[in-house]
Design a protein around this nucleic acid. Sequence first.
DNA 1: CTGTTAGCGCTTTCAT
DNA 2: ATGAAAGCGCTAACAG
Lengths: 337, 337
Amino acid sequence: MMKRATISDVAKRVGVSPTAVSFAFNNPSQLNAATVEQILAAARELGYAPNPHARALLSRRTGVLGVIVPQSLFAIYANPYFATFLQGIGSLCDDQALGLLTVSPLEGSLTSAIARAPVDGFIIVGLNENHDEVAPLRKRGIPVVIVDGHAHTTTSVNVDDEDGAYAAARHLLSHGHPHLTILTFEPVPLLEAHKASVGANRLQGYRRAVQEAGLEWAAQLVEPSISGVEDGEHCFLFLWEQGQRPTAVLCMSDAVAIGVVRAALQLGLRVPDDLEVIGFDDIPAANLITPSLSTVHQPIFEKGRTAAELLVARLEGDTPAETVVLATELVLRGTTR
Amino acid sequence: MMKRATISDVAKRVGVSPTAVSFAFNNPSQLNAATVEQILAAARELGYAPNPHARALLSRRTGVLGVIVPQSLFAIYANPYFATFLQGIGSLCDDQALGLLTVSPLEGSLTSAIARAPVDGFIIVGLNENHDEVAPLRKRGIPVVIVDGHAHTTTSVNVDDEDGAYAAARHLLSHGHPHLTILTFEPVPLLEAHKASVGANRLQGYRRAVQEAGLEWAAQLVEPSISGVEDGEHCFLFLWEQGQRPTAVLCMSDAVAIGVVRAALQLGLRVPDDLEVIGFDDIPAANLITPSLSTVHQPIFEKGRTAAELLVARLEGDTPAETVVLATELVLRGTTR
DNA sequence: CTGTTAGCGCTTTCAT
DNA sequence: ATGAAAGCGCTAACAG
């Protein structure tokens, strides 16, 4: 990998100043057409190309949007939710000729990831603005949009998680189940510690429906099941072994819900006759399994696209901070009666 | 967005040199602990963070791997093949604490995309090294790994497309079909113009099997179907309307094959009794549809992971160029007898 | 242990 | 129409 030609190599070759070379590339109209031609020719011969880092240093622009995700890149790309979300961001990047950089916690900490990333702005997913790891971001002095998290000084894009959860729980309760089983992302104390997180909001929605129905919240079975189809499957199987006999399950993600349905079928239960299940998110797979999954739809693609639009707007001018909340909608399919 | 503090702002504040500040961040052991503490405190007060572009200019490192894809980002993230491929790259990025930048043709041309991207190295997918748009890459003087394309001066990672296609065609021919229907990515002339492309290699594999079986290549029905489930579906429906009655279909991608199966089922055909179908790639969905899709498996994840490993190796030392070819394997499932 | 001095490669006034 | 000079913000010798 030989040393790259620099702008002054080209300049020397042609016998002009570096300025002229710079102009030839960025502002050819300022230069004599013949000179431009000579310079370009020399550049081609020397294999010269402008150094993007030097350019970025000066222009403060890289043409890249950063997406900070709270999981490993491996997990992100395996996750259909993020696939759709990134599609939304990607569609805007296509329009604006921007690159899309996914960054995940480096060396165990987001801080260094944030400090190093060569981007013009960040979309941060699943973390509140005041999170310890997010705070350093402000030092970078570049625009930030928070998705699925709370923000007070910058733009945020969320969906109405509480309302969606409420609708799901209410629907199930209206079928007269003696009690609900709720599968969460994390143990409840953790969930409630993360004030205003997606999980906390969904839990709050479930709780509101239960209390409105005049039932006792404590009587419901709330179990952590992490995420992923396998987690949901194991969780339901485990409950069954413990002697639990749920008739209605609410899951905080479709993946978990799909796992629950799979487990129920394995146990010989009929879905939805013996067991009703409602997921959350409405990922593509929800509509592909049999029976098709009833779930709370959220506009995942649109969420990504909107976040990217808002970020680009802040990049171009000093747009005021906005707080966007997209609607969710209960979609009844085959796993509810 | 107020002006950011620079290293010398911090230096002035504390009454030390910029060098000291630099050390405090990158090499604290060189400095008196008390000094470091002071500097860090001042940095915190001023909201200072090192400028990544300045750093990159000097260190020639951004900690980012670039992936150049021949389609829009929207299409990439919608494509399960790329999801798996990016998972492979992502898993290595996780290990090495690198970011992953997806870049697609900007303003209709790869050239500017390549010139601007702030990355340490590129993985180029689906383009040969000598492609017009790829050539400028060499000017950047950074390592490149070609995937699904031919390279003579740099490392490439491919799968044995021809062999996989050959096995698929041979299998179908052994069932005694009078002729095969082959659904390609592009019209054949285009396909053959792109010498050594994935499509050309697969076509060649099909052809070899046909000729070995003593059949006439020209007698087979070769139709372009672009890509995507809908494309496959429409293509088969169209052929049917034209009066064609295929009994065996080879598809260059699983997506197309899934579309064909869907169309056949719509037309009341029994699969595999009336129609046998073999896809290519073995994406996760191949094993989820009913009947499950027979296909040529290729190690997509491993291909991504290997490409990233090889790229990182070239980043760290001047590894010699390698030519890696991963094996494909015919996987017989429900759409073949 | 800390400061001085040069750049990294490029763009951009301001002259000529 | 072209060039000289001054940085962008940081790091890396090399002195002291």
